[in-house]
Design a protein around this nucleic acid. Structure first.
Lengths: 219, 219
DNA sequence: TTATTTTTTTAGATTTGTCTAAATTATAAT
DNA sequence: ATTATAATTTAGACAAATCTAAAAAAATAA
């Protein structure tokens, strides 16, 4: 079956919300996609017709097996293009998300297989998010946000939010990148800011906002 | 101003037809785009609103200066992507046209400038068609089809039809590629077929159909 | 030059994806 | 348990891009 760009965007959004939430509501989708709830309802009815999700009026929506497979195909295209944009075209990673959102809808399977090969079958995109293989399998790097990390618990930076711009600049300044070893030394309840230790450098301060956009894997 | 994918396809089609025809008719466009003449009329009225072409009911259409600039931007994107697909992803050139028709609508100017840089600022796409620079200028390689070449007139193959599939296979077999020196030795009026000479090889026969899809620059 | 054919446009309908406003259902609060 | 609030759906409208059928204009042929 074939999906329009609008449909693909809904599928992707449902998949993303479903990761944390299992059952996705109309309002959540409406916020995620910047459309009105009424439009979401319309689209969910159409996608239900296409048998890629379970939708019960008033009770939210969930992708079925087919729907998840389609979603992972879109994610795969998105992340491969992001990798291409950063590795080959030398974009900063905060600039690539918007462009990849367009490229991901180009629908030639052979294009994607060749792109994957050209890029050397990367396992993760520039934000640290895993790239599904052609059959939809991907590493489940279960990372949490640095904000959720326990104090004194060593961890490695494994990703950053792929939607937020301006992140590379501040991370460069703070000398944080994917792979950096970090540990929370102190947490201020007043503003949620953190004092963290990086290798043998002096303590640095991160705002709550920043810590929420950095993902880590505890060691 | 911003154009939809449908609008861009019309602009590109008008530009292409305008090359040989100056004044483009509704029916020509309808044939080129595989739509009904009535749909063409509708779209021409909308594009006239946007002031990128001159359209007089019953008297055809012509892109104005702005329209040509937009068209050349689309052509630029198309041809750069074709070059990428062949040179980097190792597609055969008859496979790339359809994919490039999708990629050409991805609308980030910075993407295209970086892609151009990454590819080394190529002057022509894999079919020999010149790539406009970022301000819309391009080499006017005035090539003619091999079918139109005069007998005994030496020429160099400078391009092939970018829309026809199966061409690389037959050209590989006949040992013809861009840059090959050719000369027509004999033309048969019966079926339009040609006997041509390539370097120091024995004469080979090309069908009229094939000769019409090969472009040459007379020497 | 008049009639016929072809081309083009107009009128009205359809699909996709969106919206607003109103109605309905579910959830939370008293 | 009833009411108020919040979430969701329905109904009806709209813009973009297409279509069919009919009307109008231009080109061609008798």
């Amino acid at each position: 079956m074939n999906f329009s760009i609008a449909e693909e965007n809904y599928i992707k959004a449902i998949w993303r919300l479903q990761q944390s939430d299992s059952n996705v509501t109309t309002n959540e989708l409406s916020a995620e996609l910047q459309t009105k709830p009424a439009s979401v309802t319309d689209m969910l009815k159409r996608l239900k017709e296409k048998k890629i999700l379970n939708y019960e009026p008033y009770y939210g929506v969930k992708l079925n097996t087919d729907g998840k497979k389609i979603a992972l195909g879109i994610i795969r295209r998105h992340r491969l293009w992001e990798y291409f944009l950063v590795e080959k075209l030398k974009f900063e990673w905060d600039a690539v998300h918007v462009i990849a959102e367009e490229l991901e809808h180009v629908s030639s399977p052979e294009l994607i297989e060749r792109l994957d090969h050209f890029l050397g079958f990367p396992k993760a995109d520039p934000h640290g998010d895993p790239i599904p293989d052609s059959s939809g399998r991907m590493e489940t790097t279960r990372h949490i946000s640095l904000h959720q990390l326990k104090e004194q618990q060593p961890a490695v930076v494994s990703g950053v939010n792929d939607q937020s711009s301006g992140l590379p600049e501040i991370l460069r300044q703070k000398k944080i990148s994917i792979g950096t070893k970090v540990e929370i030394k102190q947490r201020f309840l007043f503003d949620g800011s953190l004092e963290i230790k990086i290798r043998n450098q002096p303590l640095i301060t991160l705002s709550e906002q920043l810590a929420k956009n950095i993902f880590v894997t505890p060691l």
